[in-house]
Design a protein around this nucleic acid. Structure first.
Lengths: 217, 217
DNA sequence: CATTGTGAACTTATTCACAGCG
DNA sequence: CGCTGTGAATAAGTTCACAATG
């Protein structure tokens, strides 16, 4: 336990624990066991305990974890103690949908700016935000302390836009463009490719023996 | 190599290889090395070779992989040789954005139906599709051979809707609701939670030492 | 002779199982 | 007694490194 490092797989599950804890708190529960947490997150209790042990010793044997205390701890580890401003770059269908998505705000992510290159969009109002030009990015990022960007541009321009975002000082990017992005290793990228997800699912559906398509039978 | 099973981690990368191969074909390339594939997908060549070796022996030593042949092979493994019909369940902001997203169609996923419970939406036209009532699901699924569903309902109803989708005969679900879904183990679920993704990124941005928010300094 | 295919080494992640403790 | 915390065992994934070969 002298190792301060939290495994990637654990980090990826912390948000699920946080969600379960918030739900539990809303239900008036003060204490929760690793098994109940596992249930809520669709995992097993051993994994939960191992994960939480990387954060330190927050449980009480025979009782479980104190909901409020563990919530604070996980929020702290994830860097969510204050609201985190986010910029959305690319205001197409998906960018617009994300700008209107209240789940972000509910979990502490506020939209600091919406950015697009299209002159017809710049200055218009989307979901209560004025669309800004790309050259405003550096100022917004440094003025509002933006660390996170959501990239929803077409694939063809994604790398070029990424370079600008990184230059502006963003250190983490949620990429919805279906391309691999090259960034300096000071920057973290997570790519969510909707077609890729469907293709992976297609593999397992196919494996399970479903018919490829209804041509015939 | 007597094991017919393809590791999950490999399956998750096959779509990226497929994309790289399609791009290569469009550029007129007939043959591609593991290193070039790795480059395009943001991986290393050893991983590419190991992954492809699970599919069989498709490379030529000293030369590389035949682009067209490998494309066919991966498409087959992923079950993408025919178009795959998909239903989108939940026509809120995100459902609408996905219905309009041309990336699905371009990769062989056609929208078989848009479904919502809201009577005000049922019968209206969204992105060229007529919104249907949930009770039409079983008929659509069996008539069109739908195996995949995209779930974009609010979290509160996601499990109930999932139960209906599963009953209707869908075997794979792409879930955008921020909850764990319980399904029989004949059904595969992949959950994409946008807030979770941002929270994970927040951790790494935080680690890298960015300021949580611009309050002060 | 460039590049694949793959055992072997290594690293990371998961699960087991039980001692430790409130 | 119930539940955590954790070493030890197992499994999955990645990287190395090199013989095999078109």
């Amino acid at each position: 336990m002298t190792d301060r490092r939290i495994p990637d797989a654990t980090v990826a599950r912390l948000p699920a624990y946080l969600q379960a804890l918030v739900d539990a708190a809303e239900a008036g529960v003060r204490t929760i066991s690793s098994d109940e947490l596992a249930q809520a997150a669709g995992l097993n209790s051993a994994k939960v305990r191992k994960d939480l042990s990387f954060l330190g010793t927050y449980g009480t044997r025979g009782v479980g974890y104190h909901v409020a205390e563990l919530t604070t701890e996980i929020s702290g580890v994830l860097g969510l103690t204050d609201d985190r401003p986010v910029v959305i770059v690319g205001v197409g269908n998906l960018g617009r949908a994300l700008a209107s998505y209240d789940g972000f705000a509910r979990r502490g992510f506020t939209i600091a700016a919406l950015v697009d290159v299209d002159p017809a969009l710049i200055g218009t109002d989307i979901a209560g935000h004025r669309v800004a030009a790309p050259d405003t990015l550096p100022a917004v990022v440094s003025d509002k302390g933006v660390g996170l960007a959501v990239l929803t541009t077409p694939a063809a321009v994604a790398q070029a836009v990424t370079d600008r975002i990184v230059d502006a000082g963003v250190t983490a990017i949620l990429n919805f463009a279906p391309v691999h992005l090259d960034v300096p290793d000071t920057v973290t990228v997570r790519t969510v490719d909707l077609s890729t997800e469907l293709q992976i699912l297609s593999f397992y559906a196919h494996l399970a023996g479903d018919l490829p398509v209804a041509t015939g039978r």
